[in-house]
Amino acid sequence: MQHLVVGDIHGFPETFVALPNAGSSQRHGLQLAGLSGRPDLRGDALHDHLFNQDGMSHAVRALREIDGRGCLGIGFSAGGTALWNAVKEGLELQALICVSSTRLRFETSPLDIPTMVFWGELDPYRPTESWNNVVPMCWKTYAGKQHDFYRIDALTAQSPLRSDIAVFVEGRVVFT
């Protein structure tokens, strides 16, 4: 399965993160800054552009222009929010994984594709359990982890995050 990866406001990951058991012959790693029309921005300036100006709508439009059929979408933080919104507006993906995409807490209904979300327990902006039980198909919170836990865990070969992503990709997750 091909991967469509969208990074966070800090540019993570700068290169594609190879995931275990998620065999992919083609990988698309995209940066929010470029998708939003402001490749010169990072960090707080990019966050402001995305959420207080029109940057997110630009990113969503750019993602909708990609042929995502046959792709697994993986978004880190605001990258997951952009992918989620692009799917709502017509981007075709096989499935979507969002890691620390806390702005999803404002979503009120599930997507029509398999979705998995991951949170750090100590992230003050993560959605409630009641939200998790309604909007995504699957979710997991990692005890003792902050918002940006993925910056290490996505790159660590035997991390629980990587293992859980592999389980989801292999279709071994029981959706409730």
Rank of each mutant, 00 (worst) to 15 (best):
V117K: 06
Q94E: 15
N52Y: 05
M137F: 13
L83G: 10
P124A: 03
N52D: 03
G34C: 04
G43W: 10
P110H: 13
S100E: 03
V60A: 09
W131V: 02
S130V: 06
D48G: 03
I113D: 11
G70A: 00
D123I: 00
C98W: 08
D44K: 15
A33G: 12
S25L: 14
A95T: 06
A59V: 05
A33F: 11
A45W: 14
D67A: 00
D123G: 00
T115A: 04
C71K: 10
N132M: 05
L46D: 05
P39R: 08
L122V: 01
S25W: 15
I113C: 08
K145M: 08
L96T: 11
G55T: 01
S25H: 15
L83W: 13
R42C: 08
G75E: 08
S25V: 13
V87Y: 04
D54E: 12
Q53D: 06
R103Q: 10
G55R: 00
R27N: 15
R105D: 10
S130A: 04
G144V: 04
T141N: 02
Q94R: 13
Q53C: 00
L111Q: 11
G79H: 05
P124N: 11
Y142I: 02
L122C: 01
I74G: 11
A95E: 13
D44L: 14
P124V: 07
P110M: 12
G120L: 06
E89Y: 05
T108G: 14
Q146P: 12
F118H: 08
C98D: 12
G55V: 00
T128H: 05
W84H: 11
Y142V: 01
V99S: 05
G55S: 00
R126P: 04
H147I: 02
G144A: 05
C138R: 14
K145Y: 02
V60G: 06
G70E: 07
Q26P: 13
E92T: 05
Q31F: 03
L41I: 00
T128D: 12
A78G: 05
A82N: 14
A95V: 03
L96Y: 08
G75C: 01
I74P: 14
L32R: 12
N133F: 02
E65G: 02
W84G: 03
L96C: 10
G90V: 02
D40T: 01
G120F: 01
L30R: 15
G55W: 00
V117Y: 03
A59H: 08
R103Y: 09
T81M: 07
H28G: 13
H58W: 11
G70P: 06
S25Q: 15
M137I: 09
E89D: 10
G34S: 09
N132Q: 09
G37M: 06
A59Y: 06
S100L: 04
K140E: 02
T102K: 06
S57M: 13
A82Q: 14
W84E: 09
Q94N: 13
Q31V: 04
G75N: 06
E107G: 12
S100D: 02
E129L: 09
L50M: 04
G75S: 03
Q94P: 11
C138N: 14
N85V: 04
T108S: 15
V117I: 10
H47W: 12
H147K: 02
K145T: 06
V87N: 09
D123R: 00
K88T: 14
L93Q: 10
D112F: 04
G75Y: 00
N133P: 12
W139T: 07
L46A: 02
G79T: 03
G70I: 01
T128L: 07
A143Y: 09
V135P: 15
T115V: 09
S57C: 12
Q94W: 09
